[in-house]
Amino acid sequence: MSDRSQLISTGEPFKFDQERDTEFERLIKRYPERESMILPALWLTQEQEGWISAEAIAYIADRIGTFASKVFECATFYTMYHLHPMGKYHICVCRTLSCWLRDKQAIVDYLRDEIGIEPGQKSEDGKFSLEEVECLGHCGTAPVVQINGEFHEEMDVEKLTALLAELN
């Protein structure tokens, strides 16, 4: 784990777009405590912007009516929240048991050579970012790669080559 507490500021005020606004209002009715909306609101932000800025955290805190320190805690605790901009295509490779046994390393190595970045990095042109993540829940079809939230199962280098060509 590295320090995730150095938040990035955009210098622009943040706010939900129409769609997320509606979704926020829909979800908040589900919970007896408004604070329960911290995690869903962080997801909505990430969906909208691809990452979560300092301004977004302040916005969520004020919108929910809780302390910014609490949203800050949640955002830095869970590594699935991106606290800096990711590549246009954010590639997650599962590194948990099933995927590991089914040679996720070959996939990581291939991507490293092909795009020229290590897990945790973003390519210079901003097109790709790579991350190793824990179990994505599709162990039956390991190894699993997730690109911008979309699953690609039973991956191997061949399939990945085709996929990258499509993205490029």
């Binding site: 784990m1 590295s2 320090d3 995730r4 507490s5 300092a54 955290i57 302040a58 805190a61 302390f67 910014a68 320190s69 609490k70 949203v71 800050f72 805690e73 830095t76 605790f77």
Partner: peptide, 14 residues
């Protein structure tokens, strides 16, 4: 708040 987790956890202000 206490931000981060495991051995990088620390007390911080927003």
């Amino acid at each position: 708040g206490i931000v981060n987790r495991t051995d990088t956890a620390r007390v911080a202000i927003f």
